[in-house]
């Protein structure tokens, strides 16, 4: 398994406030890694560390195969793109000038490349525009930031809360862009977000962080498995239904309701309903529900914080 990023027991304190408490995480090449955690859990601090904006107190990380103590870590960083908190753009310049500035920093100076990158993020019409980035919408700024991150042909892109402040159309645009870049260009992503349901639409793997520590790393498939099925069955004969379900679904968690029951766990809905009908119990309604990533996150962190 090839990893683009591996961190090991990283700690970081600001004065007496310990922000990271031994962060160990692994991001595989090709993943869209959803980085989930409550406010102040340490997500942005981890991102700042990886991008070289701050330094760890202890621990280490390997970025694209290079250890952070190796001087060539800067060469590894040249192969990543990142937006930390908000896009780092020149507000008094046009989209074109912003990209030309970034290409200058990277030593590319290729106007065609800048133009095609702007088109990749869906801002091609701004190439000739003199409009300053300060007058762009939040979504446009976010996309311009991603374009600047893309200029160096990165293998790995880090986006810190990319959906923050975006309207629904903007969220869809960014989501589609991320999926396109991941699938068609093979770019690995680390995305931190508060909007967990939105993250669930793109992430292939998750890292759950709380109080400066990674609680769990889990693939989207594994998460799908552990997010519990919940079924509500309403009936006119609740007691008979309880007796039947207790006998038939021994692994499920059964909770009596006023007019029926709540079944939590992996059960075959068709099989259960068949047995109920065969027993002659009248069903008035059936509802199924799968617990969300948010509910799973809350169960992992003890529900004390909202991501």
């Amino acid at each position: 398994m090839e990893y683009v990023l591996q961190t090991k027991e990283i700690t970081k304190s600001y004065k007496s406030n310990r922000v990271l408490n031994g962060v160990t995480m692994n991001i595989r090449r090709g993943d869209i890694y959803g980085f989930v955690g409550e406010n102040g859990s340490g997500k942005t601090t981890v991102i700042r560390l990886i991008t070289g904006l701050i330094y760890a107190d202890s621990g280490e990380f390997t970025l694209l195969g290079v250890n952070d103590s190796d001087p060539s870590i800067r060469d590894a960083r040249a192969k990543i793109g990142a937006i930390v908190e908000s896009p780092s753009i020149y507000l008094n310049m046009s989209a074109k000038d912003n990209l030309l500035m970034q290409s200058g920093i990277l030593g590319i100076r290729d106007e065609e490349k800048c133009k095609s990158t702007l088109m990749t993020v869906g801002l091609g019409e701004l190439w000739e525009s003199k409009k300053h980035a300060g007058d762009f919408s939040l979504g446009m700024r976010q996309r311009l930031g991603i374009a600047m991150a893309l200029l160096g042909n990165p293998e790995f892109i880090i986006l810190d809360e990319p959906m923050n402040g975006l309207d629904p159309a903007g969220i869809v645009e960014i989501r589609e862009l991320i999926l396109h870049l991941n699938k068609d260009m093979g770019i690995t992503f680390l995305i931190s977000s508060h909007i967990l349901t939105e993250l669930a639409l793109v992430a292939t793997r998750y890292g759950i962080i709380s109080h400066g520590k990674i609680l769990q790393e889990i693939s989207a498939e594994e998460l799908e498995g552990v997010c519990r099925h919940i079924m509500f069955i309403r009936t006119t004969d609740r007691d008979s239904l309880i007796t039947l379900i207790n006998a038939e679904c021994k692994d499920a968690l059964i909770t009596p309701l006023d007019d029926g029951i709540r079944i939590e766990g992996e059960v075959d809905i068709n099989e259960v309903l068949g047995k109920i009908i065969n027993a002659g119990i009248t069903i008035t309604s059936v509802n199924t529900h799968r617990s969300s990533i948010e509910e799973y996150y809350l169960s992992m962190t003890g529900g004390g914080h909202r991501a």
Partner: peptide, 9 residues
Amino acid sequence: TVRNKIISG
């Protein structure tokens, strides 16, 4: 914008 320079290595 200084972040762009540091992230760019």
